[in-house]
Design a protein around this nucleic acid. Structure first.
Length: 457
RNA sequence: GUGGUUGUAGCUCAGUUGGUUAGAGCGCCAGAUUGUGGCUCUGGAGGUCGCCGGUUCGACCCCGGUCUUCCACCCCA
C-alpha cells in the first residue's frame, strides 16, 4: 500500500518559477548588504541545545525543534526521569542538539568563539533558514529564511542609522512601500519605572503593543488582567495617548520620564537617531512608535519593525540593539545591533502586489532544435558559442518532432528558437525564430550569437 | 499549546435526504498538420473522494481518530 508522499507541516517545496523570484529577493538583499560593507558568514543548521535554550524566553524554548540523539538515545536517561513522564526533563536527556531558531543567537555564539579572528566593529550578514515549531498560518512557516545584518562591537547610533538606510535601500529596490517603526527598550523600561511597576515591563509593553488591535479600552483591560493596579494604569495614559511629530513625542516623553535615568537615556538616543534620519530624505516613512514591543528578551536599546503598507501580513523585517548578548557566552561588553529581513513574507507581499519583474520568469534565452544526424556536432558547437556570448542556451536533448520542440520552448517561455537542418548547415547558416512575434530570419552560424544577444531580430 | 476551519483528477472546483459506472473547466498526451509553438477541431490517459477505523444492506456524504490547510488566541519573520 503506497501512500502519497508529503512534507512536514509548515514546510514547502519551491518550484523553479518560485525559486527564480525568491532568488531575486535574496540577490537584491545580498547586493545591498555588500554595498554597505557587510561580510557573509554561515553557521550550522543545528546548534547545541545549551546554546539555544533560555535565549528566547519560555515561549521560544517550546518552539525549538529538538534533535533526538543518534544511537541509543535512552542511554543517558535515568530510570526515575523515564517514569516521571516530564517531557522537558526527558528531552534534555535525550536531545543535545536543536535546529536554529534565529540567526542572532548563533551569531553571538560565533562572535564569542571567533573573537580572536574578528576585528571589531564586525559587520556581518547571514542568509539562512531557521526553524520554529509554531503552528503554521499564512505568512507563518515552520521553516523560513532570515536575512540578518548586524554590527557588533560599536555603541554608535550611526549603526542604527545605517540599518534604517539599508532597510530603505532594500525595499526601494524591491518596490515595496513600507513603514519603519522604531522604539527604544530604555524608554519602555523608563515607562515601567515611572508607573512604579518596573518588574512588570513585559506585561506592560505586551499590552501596549496591542493598542492598534484592541484599542485603548482593551489595553486597560489587559493591563488589569496582568495585575497592574489602576493607579499605575492611569499614569500610563499620557503615553498611550501620545500624539504629534517625533520631536513633540520626544518632548512629552522627556517630561514624563524625567525621574527615570534609563528613560531619559532612551529619549536622548532616539533624539540622536531621528536627528540623523531627518537630515536625510527617506522614501519610506520612519516613525517613533511606543507601542512597538518586540524581542524584549534581549533587546536593550533601539527596536525596529518594518511593515508593508499595502499588505497585511505582520512584520517583514525586525530587529534592534542588544548590549549583552555575547555576555551569555562569556564575552562581556560587546554591544550589537541588527535587523532581519523575512524573505518568505517579503515574497508573499511582492506576489500579492505583483511586484516581480518580468525577466525573473525565465532562464533560457535560446533553444536549439535538435535534428539529430550529421548536423548534431554543428548544433552542439552553435549552442556552446551562444553560451560563450553570454546567451543562456540549451539544445533539445531528443530528436523529437518539431511540434514537440516548439511546444517545449513555448511552455518554458524561451524567446528564441534556432533551426539548423541539413540545408542550413550545408550553407553554414541557421534560422532564428522570435517566438513572441513569430518572425524568423536566417543568419550565418557566426552571426547567430550576436544576433540574439543584440536583438537584431 | 487552546478553539475553530479545510481536504474530490496535475490545478481550480461541482457532486441531490446515504443508492448502480464520481463530473466540469483548465492543463497533459496523441492525431488533424512527415521543417514550426500559441488559435481551432477530434480522440485519449489520469481518482482506493487526505489516511485509519466505525455505523449501515449500501458511505465522497453520517460518527470517531489522525494528518494537512487556513483562521483566531499566544507569540513571531
Amino acid at each position: 500500500m503506497s501512500s502519497k508522499p508529503s512534507i512536514p507541516k509548515g514546510t514547502r517545496d519551491f518550484t523553479p518559477g518560485e525559486m527564480l523570484r525568491r532568488n531575486f529577493i535574496f540577490d537584491t538583499i545580498r547586493r545591498v548588504f555588500n554595498l554597505y560593507g557587510y561580510l557573509p558568514i554561515e553557521t550550522p543548521a543545528m546548534e547545541n541545545l545549551t546554546t539555544l535554550l533560555g535565549k528566547y524566553g519560555e515561549e521560544g524554548d517550546k518552539l525549538l525543534f529538538r534533535i533526538l540523539n543518534s544511537g541509543d538515545f535512552l542511554s543517558g536517561v535515568d530510570r526515575l526521569s523515564l517514569g516521571s513522564m516530564e517531557p522537558n526533563k526527558l528531552s534534555l536527556q535525550m536531545c543535545e542538539k536543536g535546529l536554529r531558531y534565529d540567526l542572532t543567537v548563533p551569531f553571538a555564539r560565533f562572535v564569542v568563539q571567533h573573537r580572536d579572528e574578528i576585528s571589531f566593529p564586525f559587520r556581518r550578514y547571514q542568509i539562512q533558514p531557521v526553524w520554529r515549531a509554531d503552528r503554521p498560518q499564512k505568512g507563518r512557516y515552520r521553516e523560513f529564511y532570515q536575512c540578518d545584518v548586524d554590527v557588533v562591537g560599536s555603541d554608535s547610533l550611526l549603526n542604527e542609522f545605517e540599518l534604517v538606510q539599508i532597510i530603505t535601500h532594500v525595499f526601494n529596490l524591491l518596490k515595496v512601500n513600507v513603514t519603519i517603526k522604531i522604539n527604544n527598550r530604555k524608554i519602555l523600561s523608563g515607562i515601567a519605572e515611572i508607573v512604579g511597576e518596573k518588574d512588570k515591563i513585559t506585561d506592560i509593553t505586551v499590552a501596549i503593543d496591542k493598542l492598534d488591535k484592541i484599542g485603548e479600552e482593551g489595553v486597560i483591560r489587559e493591563l488589569t488582567e496582568r495585575g497592574i493596579p489602576e493607579s499605575a494604569i492611569s499614569r500610563l495614559n499620557p503615553i498611550i495617548n501620545l500624539r504629534g511629530t517625533t520631536a513633540e513625542k520626544l518632548e512629552t516623553l522627556s517630561q514624563v520620564l524625567s525621574a527615570s535615568a534609563d528613560g531619559m537615556k532612551g529619549v536622548a538616543e532616539m533624539r540622536e537617531l531621528f536627528g540623523y534620519i531627518e537630515n536625510q530624505s527617506f522614501t519610506s516613512s520612519v516613525e517613533l512608535d511606543l507601542t512597538l514591543a518586540r524581542g524584549l528578551n534581549y533587546y536593550t536599546g533601539a527596536i525596529f519593525e518594518v511593515k508593508a503598507n499595502d499588505v497585511s501580513i505582520g512584520s517583514i523585517c525586525g530587529g534592534g540593539r542588544y548590549d549583552n548578548l555575547t555576555g551569555i557566552f562569556g564575552l562581556e561588553g560587546v554591544s550589537g545591533v541588527g535587523v532581519s529581513f523575512g524573505a518568505d513574507r517579503i515574497y508573499d507581499v511582492m506576489l500579492q502586489l505583483n511586484l516581480f519583474p518580468e525577466e525573473t520568469a525565465t532562464g533560457t534565452k535560446a533553444l536549439v532544435v535538435n535534428f539529430g544526424g550529421e548536423e548534431l556536432s554543428v548544433l552542439l558547437r552553435l549552442t556552446e558559442s551562444l553560451r560563450n556570448a553570454g546567451v543562456s542556451a540549451e539544445i533539445y536533448p531528443d530528436v523529437a518532432k518539431l511540434k514537440k520542440q516548439f511546444s517545449y520552448a513555448d511552455a518554458r517561455k524561451i524567446p528564441y528558437v534556432i533551426l539548423a537542418g541539413s540545408e542550413e548547415v550545408k550553407n553554414g547558416q541557421a534560422t532564428v525564430k522570435d517566438m513572441h512575434t513569430g518572425n524568423q530570419q536566417t543568419f550565418s552560424l557566426d552571426e547567430i550569437p550576436s544576433a540574439i544577444r543584440d536583438k537584431k531580430i
